[in-house]
């Protein structure tokens, strides 16, 4: 039963990814712009162009191209980047950790800020504290992540320059890392000097990405908490002698977190989507930044590779949210 559900789940994931692959493949070939024209100097002959097209397989029909590419993907060969002349898989794998670290740090920030303000707001419901939290979350939500990025650059990069506003790490540093997960590896290696430098670079883009999500978490979780706090078992816990904070943390939070959790899953995929522009703003060397370069250069294989990796990430996030939902809700586990 459980195995069957898991297999069905895997099959849907595969179909989703296939659909994404088809759409991306077709769209970027139908859209205007020719990668070959951008590679050659002005005055190249038609023969040169035709030769180069044949070299990258662009002289075949879209259907033929798709199946050639798909056959490669199945073998783990995502093709060669047209603009960078390197293996696409290698490029993507190299850049993905930077984006993952940024997204995860942003998510943790959003959970910490959103969760704390939601709990505080629920505990102080009906007071000025709650009103203040509502106003702050309203403001955080009405400004999109890239605009927060610009605001932060202005504030802490230009007016009061306390943080680095460009790149992932200070270029003069000697990096001993063997993986691309710089932040995690610096912590594992206890090189906290490097951790500090990495975080100083990551802080502003992460905050920009985290603020809108933190506001959503804060509003939804606070609302759910307030509803749960009127329920009988919470009243009973108060009669037992537990304080309001204990009641929220021990009785209410887990049950109130379920709707928020589903939403966080969906919103986390939006957050990862947001990394594309925010990474660009902060010249952060992640996958999103590379995606923009790939689109500008009409680097078809690279765009396909990046989009497919993003799609895989989204599918995996949805899967883990479903699993966590079952874990938190005992009534689903036996169903």
């Amino acid at each position: 039963m459980l195995l069957q559900r898991f297999l069905i789940r895997l099959l849907t994931m595969a179909i989703t990814l296939f659909g994404v692959a088809v759409v991306v493949f077709v769209v970027i070939r139908v859209a205007p712009g020719d990668p070959i024209a951008m590679m050659l100097p002005p005055g190249a002959t038609d023969a040169d162009i035709a030769r180069l097209r044949a070299l990258y397989g662009l002289d075949k029909t879209i259907v033929q191209q798709f199946f050639i590419w798909l056959a490669g993907v199945v073998r783990g060969d995502f093709g060669t980047s047209i603009s960078l002349r390197q293996d696409v898989l290698g490029l993507v794998v190299n850049r993905l950790p930077a984006t993952l670290e940024l997204a995860i740090v942003a998510l943790l920030m959003a959970l910490a800020i959103g969760g704390t303000t939601a709990i505080l707001g629920a505990r102080e419901r009906g007071t000025a504290v709650e009103a203040g939290i509502d106003i702050a979350s309203g403001a955080a939500l009405s400004i999109p992540d890239f605009l927060w990025g610009l605001v932060l650059i202005l504030l802490f990069g230009v007016l009061v320059p306390v943080f680095d506003i460009s790149g992932r790490v200070s270029p003069q540093l000697n990096l001993p890392f063997v993986t691309q997960f710089y932040l995690f590896e610096s912590i594992v290696r206890l090189r906290f000097d490097l951790t500090k430098d990495l975080l100083a670079h990551m802080l502003m883009p992460a905050v920009a990405l985290a603020l809108p999500l933190a506001a959503i978490i804060s509003q939804l979780l606070k609302q759910s908490l307030k509803e749960v706090l009127d329920l009988d078992y919470v009243v009973l816990a108060r009669v037992k002698g537990f304080s309001e904070t204990q009641v929220i943390l021990r009785e209410a939070l887990k049950n109130a977190a379920l709707p928020t959790l589903t939403l966080v899953g969906v919103q986390f995929t939006f957050l990862i989507g947001g990394t594309v522009i925010v990474e660009r703003l902060f010249s952060y060397e992640g996958l999103g930044n590379m995606a923009i370069d790939a689109v500008i250069n009409r680097d078809l294989p690279l765009i396909q590779g990046i989009v497919l990796v993003f799609a895989l990430l989204f599918v995996l996030i949805n899967l883990s949210v479903d699993m966590m939902y079952a874990l938190l809700n005992p009534r689903l586990r036996h169903g």
Partner: peptide, 18 residues
């Protein structure tokens, strides 16, 4: 908490489901 207790009206909602 120490000296009193409550027997609630609806046993279906008075226990924490999780």
């Amino acid at each position: 908490g120490a000296r009193t207790a409550l027997i609630p009206q609806d046993p279906l909602t008075a226990l924490n489901p999780s």
